[in-house]
Structures are given as structure tokens and as C-alpha cells.
Computed example of a mutant assay.
Amino acid sequence: MGTRGLSRWVIAIPMALLAIATIYPLLFTLNVSQKTRREYVLDRFGLSNTFGLDNFVDAWQTSGLGTYALNSTIVTLGSVALLLVFGSMAGFAFSQLHFRGSKAAFLLILGALLVPFQVVMVPFFRVLGQIGLLDTYPGLVLAYTAQFLPFTVFLMTSYYSRIPGEIIEAARIDGASTFGIYLRLMLPLGRPALVSVGILNALFCWNDVLISLLTMQSADHRTLMVGVTALRGQYSDNIPLFAGGVVMAALPVLVVYLFFQKQITDGVTAGSTKG
């Protein structure tokens, strides 16, 4: 075996182990979701002898997962919309418009990426309570927008920096205003980055537990991930039903990863190379 073949094995073996460690919990949860309560108690790790949707139906109907999924959809769509609007505007401004304090403002936004939510959790909770946005959709949408906006601005600025400034100058010579350049030129050119960043932010919002748990305090306003987490306590004696809820909550995320792998990769690497 040559040096090249050996180096491939050195990379392939750890990657294969990582893939197994990632896929096995998914398959185990799916297998448990197919079992009855009795079957799970008798043999937790064995393959299920039956196949059906009973646990999925029971989890959906008896635990309110339908309401939780609707709540997650509302706040995710609202948050992604605001993030794309403000993130694309800020990215255009920082990358193509030169104004006093732009570098300092961009560095301040980059600094916000280093601040974990746990640091601002207490003042965040107090501010939302003072302005009456606790346990409301707008409150959670604004919370997600504030939390993920620095990441969005960074990626959009990196992407827009690759667009030659001559295009902007030509548009100005043709009489386009700044907002016209943004609307008619930058948005179409930034569509690949907007799609990638939109998918990433949708995954962030959909998978979040901490911010949603802190903001949405009533059971009717829980998001899907918080609702599934609560299932563990409500149905501690019925693990197959809990597993069915987990599978349903994870399914949208898995579908997005399977069908939008390229867009997700492009979003993570946006601006890393010069075009």
C-alpha cells in the first residue's frame, strides 16, 4: 500500500466512525418509536417486531405537537424574513458603502458573535418583560433576530465584498439611488447567499430550545423542540411515544440537510475565497 492509499485510510476511518456515531442514535430512536411500551421494556436494544405509526399519531394528538409545530413555523418564518432583510441591507452597506464609523460598527457586530446568549439572558428577560413581549410571537421573533443577526451580517458582508465596486459605480452613473441599487442589483446578485443564510437561520431557529423556553412560558406557545423536551417528563413511562415525538421533530431538519447540503455548505464558506 502506497503513501497515498495509507493517507486515505487515515482520513476514511475516523470519518466512518464519526458517521456511525452520528447515524446510530437516529436509527436507534427510529427503532424505539416502532415498539410498543411492553416490547421496549422487555428488549430496549433489539429490533422492533412491528412497524406502524401508532406512536407518531399518539404523540401528535395527545401531546400538542401540532400546535408546537405551528408555533415553530410562525416564529421561524418571521425571524428568517427579518434576518434576511436587515442582514442583506447591512451587508450591502458594510461591503459597498463607505461611511464614517463603518469599520468600527462592523467590528462591533463581529464582537457580538463572541457573546453567548447565557451572558445576556437575564437582562434580555427583563427587557422583554418590561416592554410586554414575553410569551408572544413578536417577542420570540425579535429575540431570534437579535441573536442571529451578527452571523447573518457577517456572511452577507463577506459575500457582497466579492462583487466588484465598478458595478455599483455604473449603476450610480445610470441614475440609480442607493436603495435602488440594493433592491434591483444587490438582492438579485446576492440570491445564492440569501438562500444559504436563510436555510442556516431557519435551522438555528427551529432547533433552538433555550431562547424559546425563556420567552414562551405558556404551554400553548411552546415551540416544537421545547414541546418535545417536555414530552420526556410527561411520558417518562412511555419511551416509544417520546421517541416518536423526537423523530417527528427531527424529520424537517433531516429533510433540509438532505436536500440543501450544497446551499448550507456555500453559506458556511461564503466569502472565504475571492471570486
Score class of each variant (00 low, 15 high):
Ser7Phe: 05
Val10Gln: 13
Met15Asn: 09
Ala19Cys: 15
Ala21Glu: 06
Thr22Asn: 07
Tyr24Met: 06
Pro25Trp: 10
Phe28Asp: 09
Phe28Ala: 08
Gln34Met: 15
Arg37Gln: 04
Leu42Val: 05
Leu47Cys: 07
Gly52Ala: 03
Asp54Asn: 01
Phe56Met: 01
Trp60Ser: 00
Gly64His: 10
Leu65Ala: 05
Gly66Tyr: 09
Leu70Phe: 14
Thr73Tyr: 11
Ile74Tyr: 11
Thr76His: 09
Leu77Glu: 10
Ser79His: 11
Leu82Pro: 03
Gly87Thr: 02
Gly87Arg: 14
Ser88Pro: 13
Gly91Met: 10
Leu97Lys: 04
Phe99Ser: 08
Ala105Gly: 05
Leu108Asp: 02
Ile109Asp: 11
Gly111Phe: 08
Gly111Asp: 01
Leu114Gly: 01
Val115Gly: 00
Val119Ser: 00
Met121Asp: 02
Phe125Ile: 01
Leu128Tyr: 04
Ile131Trp: 13
Leu133Phe: 12
Asp135Val: 12
Tyr137Lys: 06
Leu140Ala: 07
Leu142Asn: 04
Leu142Cys: 04
Thr145Gln: 04
Gln147Cys: 10
Phe148Met: 03
Phe154His: 11
Ser158Phe: 02
Tyr159Trp: 05
Ser161Arg: 08
Ile168Phe: 12
Ala170Asn: 12
Ala171Met: 15
Asp174Asn: 12
Gly175Leu: 13
Ala176Thr: 05
Thr178Leu: 14
Arg191Pro: 04
Ala193Val: 14
Asn201Trp: 14
Ala202Gln: 11
Leu203Cys: 06
Ile211Pro: 05
Ser212Ala: 15
Gln217Ser: 07
Ala219Arg: 09
Ala219Tyr: 06
Arg222Glu: 04
Met225Cys: 02
Leu231Glu: 00
Gln234Cys: 02
Ser236Thr: 11
Asp237Phe: 09
Leu241Glu: 06
Met248Phe: 09
Val255Ala: 03
Val256Lys: 01
Val256Leu: 13
Leu258Lys: 07
Lys262Pro: 03
Thr265Asn: 08
Thr269Tyr: 12
Gly275Glu: 15
